[in-house]
Design a protein around this nucleic acid. Structure first.
Lengths: 342, 342
DNA sequence: TTGTAAGCGTTATCAG
DNA sequence: CTGATAACGCTTACAA
């Protein structure tokens, strides 16, 4: 194994000089620097991560905790995980993947052993049991999702309330009066998942202000359950002409079922989905949707942890950040003016 | 921070004794052991990962390289990633998440710096450029997927050839004679993705033996592209009664389109999908499918790297393993005897 | 601008 | 069964 000392010898300098040349923490003469760089490539030197972590008191690793059985859309989760990894690399960090089956202990473990400098939590619940650990152990962290008490934490999430409101506004603007809101499975609401509740309450508030009548129906997302949900909606409120779908899995079945029931989208029924852009584009007709903001949640979360790690290292109290990223409404082919009452 | 030395002092023993008590690498008197355990819990000791890696020459981390833009089914990938993480923990290891945008250098980096003890590669291509690095640097590794030359490597994958053959057999058994094989997008075949080619050739070989006529058609998986694909199939070979779908994304559109074209599944057309069980269950009618084996690829891959890490540490030459896991055919509601020719 | 040297917290090799 | 103690490879005051 090639060590710093080997490089130093070859370059004819001391090992501290090599170290500083690599970290940039003090000025190095140009000549020295080039000699060092040459020695490094000639020898094929790679700094040892363990030694670096031990001496430097930072592992240059951040942990990403993913849910074991995500109740959210998996591809979206994966996209965030990848964004986190890429962004972390740009900050000179690697990403350790933790699943949530270790629970709060997993978070404690990686922080206490110095394996990770900071932590990013995905799929955060309102009363998340990992949050107390973060507070107690003062672990630099960023949450993707909003717990009920975000004091002392940095969090980022979609602004789901606004997303809900945008849906209500758009349908109201088009003259629809009776709306069905097809949500996630009832278990999600029972567990008080923040995103689901916030979307719904944002929608409800705006719907009331705009004098819309609406039904909220949980839905599993399978073909069968969507069929049942739709049948009940049409039975309870046959005059329904607008549909808001939050459960990504229910979108396909819903379109198929509406067609099967003889309703054409958007002439007879308008559908608006809360989902990522590419997904909205892929259906026929292409869906009007309320979509994630451009900047990825994962990227923001990385910036938030990095800021907290830096502050902690400098001995400062890290600044709390709470960022709700506003969604955008993109009008496509699945919404149109409400059909005339006959 | 609580160190080994602190624990040793508190327990009234030397630090080496504590170390051995923790690693179990030499016998410890029961009394001593309990005293040490008590000291550890009283002080809340957590071994420092960096120091451990430096002194022990193993990081207890394995790297998992995921594709940046997976052309395979994302939830399946995520499932593997999670299985890897869980299995790794059971072996006392953590998982470092690498995206493939660092290319072969990423693999070299984590191995050379000692960040990771071993590597698991996902989405392996036939002529994967990361493979030479593994060979050259003798990095303990396991591949999920099969490169063209697996010599000196451990690999695990589905037995796609058998999957293809099972599809051909089942449809032939039911009396179908004209089959359409709806594959992945043409780019996948152009890139010589192993899984796609192997499925197809397994299917082709068996189809020929069973005297089936068949068309292979690549398909993007979007609604539009599936519509185009199906239209061409029915134009080229109107007598087609059996469909094999490998592209998961095309399943939903295909079912919708068949229905739209007036064909009932399975009375007029049989559909068999190559996809995970839960996915097959979720359609209507529930799909006859060829499905992944019970034991997760990720879990096997972890066992393979761990074996190679152990061998390397012991100074032995690691044993190459090549495991193709046989799929299972599950008959559900989407296949039936071929309709009578009229 | 550079060098010296004292750690960082474990592991593992000797002795005992 | 247990204790000293020398690595492990790097970072960072402190000196020059």
């Amino acid at each position: 194994m090639v060590t710093l000392a080997d490089v130093a010898k070859r370059a004819g300098v001391s090992s501290s000089t090599v170290s500083y040349a690599l970290s940039g923490k003090r000025p190095i003469a140009d000549l020295t620097r080039t000699r060092i760089e040459q020695a490094i490539t000639e020898l094929g030197y790679h700094p040892n991560a363990g030694a670096r972590a031990l001496a430097g008191k930072r592992s240059h690793i951040i942990a990403l905790v993913v849910p074991l059985h995500p109740e959210v859309h998996v591809p979206t989760m994966m996209e965030i995980a990848i964004a986190v990894t890429v962004a972390a690399r740009e900050h000179g960090h690697d990403v350790l993947l933790l699943t949530n089956n270790e629970g709060p202990d997993g978070v404690r473990r990686v922080a206490a052993t110095g394996l990770a400098d900071g932590v990013i939590l995905m799929d955060v619940r309102l009363d998340d049991d990992r949050v107390p650990v973060l507070r107690a152990e003062q672990i630099p962290a960023a949450l993707i999702g909003l717990p009920d008490d975000p004091a002392g934490l940095s969090c980022v999430d979609h602004d789901f309330a606004t997303a809900g409101a945008l849906c209500a506004d758009h349908l109201a603007d088009l003259g629809h009066r009776d709306i069905a809101f097809i949500g996630y499975s009832s278990g999600v609401y029972r567990r008080h998942a923040g995103y689901a509740e916030r979307t719904l309450s944002g929608f409800r508030a705006r719907a009331e202000r705009r004098d819309l009548r609406f039904l909220h129906r949980p839905c599993e997302g399978s073909y069968e359950s969507t069929a049942g949900t739709l049948a009940r909606i049409l039975a309870d409120r046959p005059e329904t002409t607008g549909f808001v779908v939050q459960n990504e899995a229910a979108i396909g079945p819903l379109l198929t079922l509406l067609r099967a029931s003889g309703r054409t989208v958007p002439e007879d029924a308008s559908v608006i989905a809360i989902c990522p852009d590419p997904m909205a584009e892929q259906y026929s007709p292409r869906l009007t949707s309320v979509t994630s903001p451009k900047k990825d949640l994962g990227q923001v979360a990385v910036e938030q942890v990095m800021a907290r790690i830096a502050a902690t290292a400098a001995g400062d109290r890290p600044e709390d950040q709470l960022l709700l990223m506003p969604p955008e409404l993109v009008v496509r082919e699945s919404t149109a003016g409400a059909p005339r009452r006959t």
